[in-house]
Write a protein that binds this DNA or RNA. Structure first.
Lengths: 157, 157
DNA sequence: TCACTATCGAAAATGGTTTCCAATTTCAAA
DNA sequence: TTTGAAATTGGAAACCATTTTCGATAGTGA
């Protein structure tokens, strides 16, 4: 994961070139899938979705690209505890679709919630600022997840 | 992970028995290590710490026990994104040592912070309540983590 | 004592992710 | 154009934390 730094603004194509990366067919295809499918795709999900139209894009490339996208801050890598990373397009803490996650520890169902987001984000922003200063961290991302049992799994046995 | 349900109160010994589990030497040793060492131990860390005094407790057992402890809510399973789970004794959202995490995505250094915890916890409690009701979730845990670059890694090229 | 489980450790298997490598593509400078 | 260095690629093999399997042992209640 070289050339990590480069959190500029701008988007997609320009962003890539500006950081010395090339926006190739494969990468575009991956971004395309991510922007169309509703969140939480695993590397394999993406690979499978891409394969019909781009049979020559390998799983390795998907992983590599997700890594790059992630280091550019364009994609968020999520972990719901099932041993398989998920990815979703990042939209910044103030983006219209910003959400947090509610994860069932039994069936691994994931609910995106946006309720309370405003309050959370506000608090988070302050916290981020304070922590960044105190610990000399350059904070780029946050994860808020609630774990528990979903409707079905509470009653299931 | 059988017999999942059993989030009673009480602690340790009584808690085990009450749920049909046995509190064996190995399990006690694991709880002991967790309660003494400062948080964030991986399964292997625990295995290594235990081994001198309990050479007959295998890594498998450590994993199994952590699983049980986790399902009993006595231990929190953490993920810092380095592909290796960490565990720490759970203390409940209101526990004296409750903290959240600040993770460097470059060197994987983890800082426990307690600043802002009060505000966070308060908001969290409300959110938890609201979400639980709205989505019919029985929320048992939450994760709040900030990711970024630590002091050293910002400047390290 | 007698079943009936829970539990055990070691070894093997699993499976997501990374690494390796040789071939290909891209792009800017000549 | 041509050219060469750097970026990128796919496939196979490696990696490695975690799980599963399996046969054996130990607790527990009757």
């Amino acid at each position: 994961m070289p050339r990590g730094e480069c959190q500029g603004q701008g988007w997609w194509h320009g962003r890539f070139r500006g950081c010395g990366y090339r926006l190739t067919i494969g990468r575009e295809a991956i971004l395309d899938v991510l922007s169309k499918a509703p969140g939480h795709l695993s590397a394999e999900d993406i690979y499978i979705k891409i394969h019909p139209g781009h049979p020559n894009v390998g799983l390795t490339t998907v992983y590599r690209t997700l890594d790059v996208l992630s280091s550019l801050g364009m994609v968020s890598k999520l972990d719901f505890g099932d041993g398989r990373a998920r990815y979703e397009l990042a939209e910044g803490p103030k983006g219209a679709h910003h959400h947090h996650h509610l994860v069932c520890t039994d069936c691994n169902k994931v609910i995106d919630y946006t309720d309370f987001i405003d309050e959370e984000v506000e608090l988070l922003r302050e916290t981020e600022k304070g922590l960044g200063k105190k610990y000399n961290f350059k904070i780029t991302n946050h994860v808020i997840q609630f774990y528990g049992l979903c409707d079905k799994c509470i009653h299931k046995k």
